[in-house]
Design a protein around this nucleic acid. Structure first.
Lengths: 209, 209
DNA sequence: TTTTATACATACATAAACGTATGTATAAGG
DNA sequence: CCTTATACATACGTTTATGTATGTATAAAA
């Protein structure tokens, strides 16, 4: 076949990732072969091996393209809580995060795929280590955020910031996970996301007015 | 080889499940082959195919042996909340559930394996459908429990029982999931389980004294 | 005691996915 | 305009796990 322009090549790159996303969601990651992805994008495996090293690299690229922006924005924003009203700032960041997941289907799909790729074993693959690092990063920034909230007297409870962080992370990840999994009982995060976050945060975040 | 007694056969059955558990945990489900399991139990694949249809059947058997008891006890207990003090009864059931997961390693391992086996796709395997059914059962009994709590004026909040149920399930599953995954930041559910549950339940469960 | 079903081991067939090697038309660079 | 690196397609070889088929020694049934 013929050589494409740089723009064409970039188009196939995205077409491959888009095809991979659909297939991963609809028939599962394990059952999706590289050939499936290629043909779904009207290409051959040659195209995939040109753009990616293997299936794990596809998943990682998916994360980079669809989730890394939110991850970075989230972590950096958490590190700079408002001086005057950190509690409300924190609350707003969390609500925006949830709404991002709800409003950007590609983001939600990427998160779902990534969540299923994280199997913590003795010997991690490169993808596992990468995702694990991001996971740890999330947890530690969240813990720092709660530490900051505590220092600024923005917390009602006397529980340790570590414990609160772990509890809230469990809640947040649980919400997103249940939302993203298409079980029978649907969780409407779009409508109820704010209420559900307030349900947890109201009792622990102090009012500042 | 020779025929074993019924007791011997049962021993190999359990040896196979034990070996499968260890391998699934340590090297992942996908990477664990039936041959791995067999040799780890000092058997051959013949033994596996005698006792199970395939790898999915092994996982299902693992659930039946190590998790079904708790699942059944949990769901039936939730359906019979105390007449006089349903809120405290509910709280106790949840704390006992968490402590069960903490105190029974085989149970926790089974849950972890099962959690990783649930990939919701268009065409579900038999295992997927089975686990999905259990999952749905959990959600609906939890929702009924919250409906009962609401009817008996055991809830402080005016939020719908459906929403509360979804929120609490997210929290519960999130806690257990983060506890079972051996990330760097460890969640000590044994010590903090009760506090973490109270953190969520105190603001919504009414006092009855 | 003979028979039969059991509880595996062993052997086989295959199929599927992977990674790599190679081919090639053509944009892009000089 | 010539050359080269690009962006794939195609072909190949190998591996590896799976399911099944068959063999077999012996508990258990009769």
């Amino acid at each position: 076949m013929a050589r494409k322009t740089k723009e064409d090549a970039e188009r196939t790159y995205h077409a491959l990732l888009d095809a991979a996303t659909k297939l991963f969601i609809h028939q599962g990651i394990a059952k999706t072969t590289l050939n499936d992805i290629a043909t779904a994008a009207a290409m051959t495996r040659g195209a995939i091996y040109w753009h990616f090293d293997n299936k794990d690299a596809v998943i990682r690229a998916l994360w980079e393209r669809n989730a890394s922006t939110l991850h970075d924005a989230f972590t950096t924003e958490l590190k700079h809580l408002d001086r005057d009203d950190p509690a409300e700032h924190f609350r707003r960041i969390m609500k925006e995060l949830v709404q991002s997941v709800v409003n950007q289907p590609e983001l939600g799909q990427a998160i779902r795929i990534v969540m299923h790729s994280v199997e913590f074993t003795d010997e991690q693959t490169e993808l596992q280590r990468f995702l694990n690092a991001k996971h740890v990063e999330l947890h530690s920034t969240m813990e720092q955020a709660f530490a900051t909230l505590k220092k600024r007297k923005a917390l009602k409870t006397s529980l340790s910031s570590t414990l609160l962080s772990q509890g809230f992370m469990s809640y947040l990840l649980g919400l997103i996970h249940i939302y993203l999994e298409p079980g029978i009982k649907k969780l409407d995060l779009k409508k109820s996301g704010d209420q559900l976050l307030d349900l947890f945060l109201d009792p622990i975040l102090a009012r500042t007015e």
